[in-house]
């Protein structure tokens, strides 16, 4: 090797892409089908619980879940975390809150995002409402709900 001095160390980008295709089953399938129709479904269980997203089996008792019922589209934020710098794959391209939303008629929280503009507009106990993407763009996915928005401004 004729060269003296520092060797250049090579570096290159390496992108890894893989897509899983999951079978969703009858209950999550119904939930996703509902989203495509602009409806949010929960599963009924023992003691009056309504689990959203619905599960095939009651998380408390292990019994098969009961019938699916429509919940929301508005509800209450139980807890939230503000994101100042959204990354490329996150649902919104502007600062937003991750939040657990207990939809009206549900007894569990749904994890989604709240487009509130500023963390000052966020509080536990605030009411928010689901904003669906236009029907033509829905594909049976949780992101058929574009976001939740504070109810006063929706």
């Amino acid at each position: 090797m004729g060269d003296t001095g520092a060797e250049e160390v090579l570096r290159a980008p390496h992108a890894l892409d893989y897509t899983y295709t999951r079978s969703v089953g009858p209950v999550i399938g119904a939930f996703l089908t509902g989203l495509r129709q602009g409806r949010i479904l929960g599963a009924t269980g023992a003691g009056g619980v309504v689990t959203v997203p619905p599960t095939e089996y009651d998380p408390q008792t292990g019994e098969r879940s009961g019938e699916l019922v429509e919940v929301g589209p508005a509800g209450v934020v139980s807890t939230w975390a503000w994101t100042d710098h959204p990354s490329a794959d996150q649902p919104l391209d502007r600062p937003f809150a991750w939040a657990l939303v207990t939809l009206d008629g549900a007894t569990t929280g749904l994890l989604h995002v709240v487009d509130a503009g500023s963390s000052d507009a966020m509080s536990s106990g605030m009411r928010v409402r689901a904003k669906f993407v236009p029907e033509a763009d829905r594909r049976g996915h949780l992101r058929d709900i574009e976001c939740f928005v504070p109810e006063a401004s929706s």
């Binding site: 980008p13 992108a15 892409d17 893989y18 897509t19 295709t21 999951r22 089908t33 495509r36």
Partner: peptide, 11 residues
Amino acid sequence: VAVLETPIHVD
């Protein structure tokens, strides 16, 4: 809806 695609992208 019967299937869901979950793409993973890692840089």
